[in-house]
Design a protein around this nucleic acid. Structure first.
Lengths: 210, 210
DNA sequence: CAGATACTGTCACATTGTGACAGTTGCGTG
DNA sequence: CACGCAACTGTCACAATGTGACAGTATCTG
C-alpha cells in the first residue's frame, strides 16, 4: 500500500482544515450566523474553493453524521443474513455507535454532540439532516426488502420499515440531546428499537382484535 | 358572520392568484426551474410582495399540504378520547383524506397529485415538506402523550409514535404516486397504519422465509 | 523534461430572502 | 364627507448561497 500521493494528502488537509474551522466558528457564533466566507477565510482559501469540497454549508456540518450513516448501511448489508429484520437494523445501528463510543477519537465524539446542538438551533440544518437520511432510504429499503423476501419496487413495506428505523435513530438522537444527555448513544438507540414493537400496539393489552 | 371586507377579499384574491400562477408554472417548467420572479410577474406583482404572502417558494407549493396537516392535527385533538393511540391516529388521518376525496373540489385533488410529482422531482421541495411535517411533530407528540398518559417532555415515546405516524403518511403518499396511482389516498393510508404493528414484528412469530 | 491532469483564485452571475422607506388605498371615526 | 390610522405595495439596497467560465499554478506520469 503506497503513499496516497502529495496531492491527495494536501487535499485531505484542506478538507480537514475546513471542517475544523467550520466547527470552531459554529461553536462560537452558531450555525446560521456563520458564513461560508468566514469559514473559507479562516483557512486562507477562496469561498469558491469551499464549494469544491462541500456542496453547501450544511454539508460540512453534517459530514460526520454522513460517515456514521455510511458505516451503518454497510454494517446492515453485511449483517448475519439469518437474523430478523428488526434485529439486523437494531444491531447494525447500535454496533456502529458503540464502536464510535469506545474506539473513536475524543474530538469525534465532541463533534457529534456539538452537531446535535446545532440541529436544535438551526431549522435549516435540521432539514438538511433529514434530507441526508432520506437519501439513504432507498438503499436501506433495498436491504430490508432482501431480508423480508419482498420486492421494494412493488411493495411499500420495506420503505415503511426503513423509514421507521430512521425515525428511531432520529428520536434517539433527540432524546440524547434533550432528555438524557448523560446516557450513551448506544443505550438510547437500543431502547428505541426495543420500544418500537411495544408502543405501536399501545394499549394492546386487552383490546379488541381487528 | 359579516362580510370579510374589501381589503381582506382582495388579499385572498392575490394569494389565490399567486398559488394558481405558481402551480401553472410548476406544471409547465417544474419546481426548480420556476423562479419567484416569474410567479410574481404572472400576477403583475413585485417579487417583494410575493414574500409577504409566502415565506419561500417551497411555501406556496406546500400550502395545500399544510392545510391538510392542520386539519389532521385538529381532528386528532378532537378524537374520541377512549380510543387507543393507533386508532385515533389512523382515524384522523383517514377521515381528513376521505373528506377531501369525497367533498373536496376537483382542482384541489389535482393539486395534491401534482404536489406529489413535484416532491419526487425536487429534493429541495422534499426537504421542505419533511421540515413542515417535523414542525407539527411537537404538537402531535403532545396529543399522543396525553392519550398515552405520559409526559412528552420526560419520555421520548410519544415522539417516537408521532414520528412513526408521519412516516406512515409519507410512505402512503409515496406509494400513491409510485406504485399505485390508481388507489385512493384513504385506502393506502389505512393500509399503512394497519401494516405498522405487523411488519415491525416481522418475522417475530416463527420463521423468516427465504 | 514535457504534456496531461487536478486544484485554485478571480470574475461574473442568478436566485432567494430581508430591511428600510415612501406612496397608495381601504376603513372607521368625528 | 373629510380626516387620520392602519395595511398593502413597490422600489431600492443589500447579504448570502451557489454555479459557470477562464486562466494560472502545482502535481503526477511517461
Amino acid at each position: 500500500m503506497t503513499s496516497p500521493g502529495l496531492r491527495e494528502r494536501k487535499r485531505q488537509r484542506t478538507r480537514d482544515a475546513l471542517t475544523d474551522a467550520a466547527y470552531a466558528l459554529f461553536e462560537r457564533k452558531g450555525f446560521d450566523a456563520t458564513t461560508v466566507d468566514e469559514i473559507a477565510g479562516a483557512v486562507e482559501v477562496s469561498p469558491r474553493t469551499f464549494f469544491r469540497y462541500f456542496t453547501s454549508k450544511e454539508d460540512v456540518a453534517l459530514a460526520p453524521a454522513d460517515e456514521q450513516l455510511t458505516r451503518m448501511v454497510q454494517t446492515l448489508a453485511d449483517w448475519k443474513p439469518d437474523d430478523p429484520v428488526i434485529t439486523a437494523l437494531k444491531g447494525s445501528v447500535v454496533d456502529v455507535v458503540t464502536a464510535c463510543e469506545s474506539d473513536g477519537a475524543e474530538v469525534d465524539r465532541a463533534r457529534y454532540r456539538r452537531l446535535q446542538a446545532l440541529l436544535l438551533e438551526s431549522p435549516a440544518l435540521m432539514a438538511a439532516c433529514r434530507q441526508q437520511g432520506n437519501a439513504r432510504l432507498e438503499e436501506v429499503a433495498r436491504l430490508v426488502g432482501l431480508r423480508m423476501g419482498v420486492e421494494p419496487a412493488a411493495d411499500p413495506r420495506p420503505y415503511l420499515v426503513a423509514s421507521i428505523a430512521l425515525c428511531a435513530v432520529q428520536t434517539a438522537a433527540d432524546a440524547w440531546q434533550q432528555h438524557r444527555p448523560g446516557a450513551t448513544g448506544s443505550e438510547l438507540l437500543a431502547e428505541m428499537f426495543d420500544l418500537l414493537a411495544a408502543d405501536l400496539n399501545y394499549p394492546a393489552h386487552g383490546r379488541r382484535r381487528s
